[in-house]
Simulated scan of single mutants.
Amino acid sequence: MKKVLLKEIASIAGVVPSTVSCVLNGKAKERRISDDLAQKIKEIAEGVGYIPNQVAVSLRTGYSRILGLIVEDISNIFFATLAKVLEDEVQKHGYRVVYCSTENDKQKGTELLNMLYHRQVDGYIIAPALGMEESIKSLLKQHKPVVLVDRFFPGVGTTNVLVDNYGSTRKAIGFLLRQGYKRIAFVTTNRQMVQMQEREKAYKDELADSLSAVDEHIVLNIDYFNLYPAGREIITAFLLQNEGVDAVFFATNYLGMYGLQSLKTLGWKIPDRIAVVCFDDNDIFKLYSPGITCIRQPIHEIATAAAKRIIGQIESDRQPENEQVLIEGELVIRGSA
């Protein structure tokens, strides 16, 4: 395949090669190139199959215009949606995204950071695994643009963009209490990440502050790495040991999925026998009968805020700020509670 050169695109567009270079490197507005001309050049470049030499671009400009996104599991609907919105947002500014999954393994997470570092990405958007604090501190010491999403490390001075886990969970537990439920179980994982701790604390605080609640914490902490294949069995055994519960809150959507399997196995009808609420939505929750009440995370807002802040850090050449961006979750009421 013949390599298409900038000067060939410039000749077709009737401009000089430097104008083409500015447009394709995302600097059209900076150089005051009209939107119509920039669009024309992009369409010509796409039509002739122009592929930029990223190494050359990086050496010439000092920027790769590539961002690294590290999440827990890219197949999870939350992270997949986050990645898609983020990709669309940064593309407006001429950036591309490389995706990676840690599977909640700190060693894998650190290896992925090293890989992205050697690929000279311009910035890092990370939903970190527990134990990645030192790796992230190392990036900060080198003045690398970093934004953490979904979870963060207290004491590490980063920009963090996430749902208000504490306030959103209190909203959900408060709703169950107002509906008249008194013995509310809480199912979570034993991963000591801050978002899970805040959800559990909110559950306990809301019960403690309610005069109508039974002063009892019915909590199941499941080993994250034992969820598959034992998640359903573990939740089933827990519910049988606590048959007096009249509602259950699942701290993540994947726990909610295991929980629905358990309730089906037990033959417990929702909401007649037990009410169900889950943190985070899932397409299955909409289709399930009855629909599952949940806290819906504002994924679009989280991704947009993260994109704005990482690009701001890169293009202003400023250090990551110690900033906490909390976005309120939405209580979506369906038939399960």
Score class of each variant (00 low, 15 high):
residue 238 F to K: 01
residue 230 A to P: 12
residue 236 T to Y: 03
residue 245 V to Q: 03
residue 239 L to I: 15
residue 260 L to I: 08
residue 229 P to M: 00
residue 247 A to N: 04
residue 266 L to G: 07
residue 270 I to R: 02
residue 271 P to E: 00
residue 262 S to M: 05
residue 264 K to E: 14
residue 267 G to F: 02
residue 203 Y to K: 02
residue 187 V to A: 00
residue 224 Y to D: 07
residue 266 L to W: 04
residue 253 N to S: 15
residue 217 H to L: 02
residue 253 N to K: 06
residue 225 F to S: 07
residue 266 L to N: 05
residue 197 Q to F: 15
residue 185 A to V: 05
residue 254 Y to F: 15
residue 202 A to T: 09
residue 239 L to F: 14
residue 266 L to F: 06
residue 194 V to Q: 12
residue 249 F to L: 07
residue 203 Y to A: 00
residue 205 D to C: 05
residue 271 P to M: 00
residue 263 L to A: 05
residue 241 Q to M: 03
residue 251 A to T: 15
residue 215 D to K: 14
residue 253 N to H: 14
residue 281 D to A: 09
residue 252 T to L: 01
residue 281 D to I: 01
residue 232 R to T: 15
residue 240 L to R: 15
residue 235 I to D: 02
residue 181 Y to T: 06
residue 206 E to N: 02
residue 227 L to W: 12
residue 202 A to N: 09
residue 213 A to I: 00
residue 243 E to T: 08
residue 222 I to P: 13
residue 184 I to Y: 14
residue 191 R to H: 07
residue 236 T to D: 02
residue 186 F to K: 03
residue 179 Q to V: 00
residue 202 A to K: 08
residue 191 R to T: 12
residue 273 R to K: 12
residue 238 F to R: 01
residue 247 A to C: 06
residue 243 E to K: 11
residue 215 D to Q: 14
residue 211 L to Y: 10
residue 240 L to M: 14
residue 279 F to V: 04
residue 195 Q to M: 11
residue 266 L to T: 07
residue 270 I to V: 14
residue 225 F to M: 05
residue 221 N to K: 13
residue 257 M to A: 12
residue 177 L to Y: 10
residue 260 L to G: 10
residue 252 T to A: 03
residue 179 Q to I: 00
residue 207 L to P: 14
residue 273 R to F: 01
residue 271 P to F: 02
residue 188 T to S: 14
residue 257 M to F: 13
residue 226 N to M: 10
residue 224 Y to R: 06
residue 178 R to L: 04
residue 233 E to P: 04
residue 262 S to K: 02
residue 228 Y to G: 05
residue 251 A to L: 06
residue 277 V to Y: 01
residue 259 G to Q: 03
residue 201 K to C: 03
residue 194 V to H: 12
residue 282 N to G: 13
residue 277 V to N: 00
residue 240 L to Y: 10
residue 191 R to L: 13
residue 195 Q to N: 15
residue 270 I to A: 01
residue 180 G to V: 04
residue 213 A to L: 04
residue 281 D to F: 05
residue 278 C to N: 10
residue 186 F to A: 02
residue 208 A to E: 13
residue 250 F to E: 04
residue 233 E to F: 13
residue 249 F to H: 07
residue 275 A to C: 08
residue 218 I to E: 05
residue 210 S to V: 00
residue 218 I to G: 10
residue 218 I to D: 07
residue 268 W to Q: 04
residue 218 I to A: 05
residue 212 S to Q: 07
residue 192 Q to K: 11
residue 215 D to V: 01
residue 222 I to E: 05
residue 220 L to H: 08
residue 254 Y to P: 12
residue 184 I to N: 13
residue 190 N to D: 15
residue 204 K to Y: 01
residue 220 L to M: 06
